[in-house]
Design a protein around this nucleic acid. Structure first.
Lengths: 230, 230
DNA sequence: CAGGGTTATGTCTGAGAGGGAACAACGGTC
DNA sequence: GACCGTTGTTCCCTCTCAGACATAACCCTG
């Protein structure tokens, strides 16, 4: 069971989604809405209809040439390229959150100031963003790419960094990839943090199984969601 | 134009989405699939059909009681609660990425080792995860909740931290919220990083407009996506 | 033993999205 | 001036999905 998503940009009642992005890119490649629809196996009439609907909300997306040599064609406007770039960025971000590993800690909210909560977990107290909830039982998720590792002797002082969560631990395993490694850090007897770091960080920090490290992550990058243990 | 998304858990051909989560929660509240469908304004037959389809893929989600005192009812299984918790966590994560501000830097890939790229931007060289692309022109997105601020005199040494990106700058503005503040850091003449930190971090680091700070963020939390400037 | 609210199952109907086809308008090219 | 491939517009058909409605099976309560 894995995570999936569809993302879109909403503007003026229309949702620009992945199909729309595909259509625009096809128009860019083919130079014609007709050939674009054909290439994608979609009907021209619907593609045209969709395009005009998008333009009603987003402004001109293609410059049309009807008749002329070759019969005409369509080209993307700068606005269309901007929307595409924006969408691509959004998709990259979402792909990241869908794929990145996260360590989940079950815990209970012991203090709360507005949207910020202090949660008692098996790893210790964690500060996290928490939407108002009707229950104290929450699970705290920490993205592996949000965990920064430090050499213990040179870890920043508590008051010198904006990372509000900080745990000393020992490296229990390193899952080395091509350029990115997954480092497991035992923060307590039954709490293992997963951290995603570059291979060069592993080298510079001289990380190996058994190394002492300090793992830190920001409260604003940590999210609590209601949920019982399981 | 803002970001939207729908998320789901995929398993065995079925996609557990927000509507399904709503249905399960309604069953939990009402104790009956009938009343749950009624409360949500959905037809019982479709709700039942959907539930059995979900159970085919995910295993038993409700224990059914047909007949008996009160006519019977349905209750969630522990598996159902686990799926709900998992979905809720996923949604919280996605909501975060959809809502958090990010600073976007346009740049060009100047070096690449596998999935890791070095990008030349207006703020300097940035290390980022970058999917293989056909163009050097990329935009680098840094989430505001991924940027850690340090006191300049106590910022960790380059070799002592796994944060591969690090920029000294001055605070240009602070957008103080209830418990979370948005800090703008001028890293260069035309590159302003946005960092989301807790109010207590603002206090501990004694941040104000004009303060010198060091902003750091991990390469594995930074994503490049293809795209021209705009 | 009837009552009642539930689960379980199937059919009809309507809304919406999409494909396919037809046709007009357009304007360089031959 | 005919030709051609495009854009622009319209109509119809199909497919899918959800609601609605009807009906059977179930089993504890009184």
């Amino acid at each position: 069971m894995d995570a999936g998503f569809e993302t879109h940009l909403r503007a003026d009642g229309v949702e620009f989604d992945a199909d729309d992005a595909e259509l625009l890119r096809a128009v860019d490649r083919e130079g014609s809405l007709n050939r674009a629809a054909d290439e994608l196996g979609r009907s021209y009439s619907r593609a045209h209809q969709r395009l005009t609907a998008l333009e009603d909300a987003l402004g001109p997306l293609v410059t049309r040439q009807r008749g002329g040599s070759g019969g005409g064609g369509s080209e993307l406007t700068d606005e269309a390229r901007a929307v595409l770039a924006r969408f691509e960025r959004l998709r990259a971000e979402f792909t990241g959150t869908a794929e990145v590993e996260e360590t989940v800690l079950s815990g209970r909210v012991v203090a709360r100031e507005g949207e910020l909560a202090t949660v008692e977990t098996s790893a210790g107290r964690v500060r996290a963003l928490a939407p108002e909830a009707d229950t104290d039982a929450v699970q705290v998720a920490v993205r592996a790419d949000a965990v920064t590792l430090h050499a213990p002797e040179d870890a920043p002082a508590e008051a010198a960094t904006s990372a509000r969560n900080r745990f000393a631990g020992t490296v229990s395993a390193i899952d080395a990839g091509e350029q990115v490694a997954r480092v497991l850090v035992d923060a307590s007897a039954d709490a293992t943090l997963s951290a995603l770091v570059t291979a060069s960080s592993v080298e510079k920090l001289d990380l190996r199984a058994g190394s002492e490290v300090v793992a830190s992550f920001k409260a604003t990058a940590t999210r609590a969601s209601p949920g019982e243990d399981w």
